[in-house]
């Protein structure tokens, strides 16, 4: 991962802000190894108690979908309205379901 300039690799940082919530991407940083990345993430991204748990992932390990595939990936879900509960009309007598 290191190149000739001895750059520390880039890591993406994900923070769980409190128990019960998922980890959310907050940004990136450089570190030579995973331990350092976690330490740096703690110092950089949780200075104001923003987190209870940290994930760090080498940026180069992330595979991302491409915007050019976004129509194929996401548009087909657009007409499946029956996946949303509001599609179904309930009899007036039934208040909650």
């Amino acid at each position: 991962m290191s190149d000739t300039k001895n750059n520390w690799p880039l890591w993406e940082v994900f923070i769980r802000s409190k128990q019960g919530l998922g980890h959310k991407h907050v940004g990136s940083l450089h570190a030579s190894d995973a331990e350092m990345a976690i330490g740096n993430a703690r110092d950089v991204y949780t200075r104001r108690q923003e987190g209870v748990s940290i994930w760090v992932v080498p940026s180069e390990s992330i595979s991302a979908s491409s915007p050019k595939d976004s129509e194929a990936l996401f548009d087909p879900a657009n007409d499946k309205v029956y996946r949303h509960p509001t599609f179904f009309v309930l009899p007036d007598e039934v208040n909650h379901m």
Binding site: M1, S2, N6, N7, W8, S32, D33, M36
Partner: peptide, 15 residues
């Protein structure tokens, strides 16, 4: 800081 950054990379590579 160059020697420090370099050392950290060398250590990570060894590990």
């Amino acid at each position: 800081g160059a020697w420090v950054r370099e050392a950290a990379v060398a250590y990570a590579d060894k590990k």
